[in-house]
């Protein structure tokens, strides 16, 4: 049995009265590519936001590499309002800001690209190196950390070369074509040295050719950086192609899970999602 990387346990995320994610259970093992699919509004991005510390789930627990990084139970105003399951199962609160989660080794991209669009391609990657630098404010501000600054720059450059983005190094990130912006967002996430990479609809807006390339690219970085990958995507050929396992979410609830072949032939999934996904 491979080592568990991410363990999502009974996670419910409720916004006011709206239950966006309802009792989600999901596991990712070392080296796996796991996809989370489902119709728009099913709660996929919300699940990502719970893992990365953007939202505090209303109930449930998330472990990363054996360490509990998120835990919560309905309290305060939510105590009365809570409409999910497993009330009373948890009694601790563990909560981190997103930067701490990133530091622990979970990096992400966003459904709506969020590059530092007025900064250069190079700076976008370089900024991601800031977190792991050993400099302090004064040594950096007075430029006494030349060796480290040089290393950060070299590593960023190497990453850009690897991703084929080096010729756009000095371009303003926002001026890149759409496909390359997605690429850059992945490169920037890789620059944080993650162990788990969360990709939220990385192929959105890509043509079939680009999607095909992206699929190969995701498998490639998984092997190269020894990553595990958690993927949200609507392009079914991509998902079926590269995923080891797939979870299907509908109205916040898990309706199926399994290897691609199982999911493709699952009646519930076809009804809820696969049947309609073609017209999107």
């Amino acid at each position: 049995m491979a080592e568990n990387v991410l363990h999502i346990e009974n996670v419910t995320m409720q916004f006011g009265g709206v239950v966006a994610v309802n009792n989600l259970n999901l596991d990712i093992n070392q080296g796996e590519i796991v996809a989370l699919i489902g119709p728009n509004g099913a709660g996929k991005t919300t699940a990502f936001n719970c893992v990365t510390g953007v939202y505090e789930p209303t109930n449930g627990k998330i472990d990363f590499l054996g360490e509990t990084i998120v835990e919560n139970f309905p309290h305060g105003k939510m105590k009365k309002l809570y409409a999910g399951e497993n009330m009373g199962l948890y009694s601790n609160v563990v909560s981190h800001t997103p930067d701490v989660i990133t530091y622990k080794g979970i990096a992400r991209t966003f459904q709506n690209i969020r590059l530092f669009s007025k900064l250069s391609v190079f700076e976008n990657v370089l900024i991601a190196k800031h977190m792991r630098a050993k400099q302090n404010f004064f040594s950096a501000a007075l430029h006494l950390n030349r060796a480290e600054e040089k290393r950060m720059r070299e590593e960023s450059m190497a990453l850009l070369v690897e991703q084929g983005l080096d010729k756009y190094k000095d371009d303003v990130a926002g001026s890149l074509p759409y496909g390359l912006q997605r690429r850059l967002e992945i490169a920037r996430a890789l620059a944080t040295d993650p162990k788990l990479l969360l990709l939220d609809e990385p192929a959105a807006g890509m043509n079939p050719q680009e999607t095909l390339e992206l699929a190969a690219f995701i498998s490639e970085i998984r092997d190269k950086y020894k990553l595990s990958i958690f993927l949200v995507e609507h392009h079914m050929d991509l998902v079926m192609n590269i995923s080891d396992r797939i979870y299907v979410l509908d109205f916040g609830k898990l309706i199926a899970q399994g290897v691609p072949a199982e999911i493709q032939s699952n009646e519930k999934v076809i009804d809820a999602y696969l049947g309609v996904s073609e017209d999107e």
Partner: peptide, 12 residues
């Protein structure tokens, strides 16, 4: 440029 992205890049 973008607080949410900055935070996701590990900036406190």
């Amino acid at each position: 440029e973008d607080e949410i992205a900055a935070e996701a890049m590990g900036i406190n």
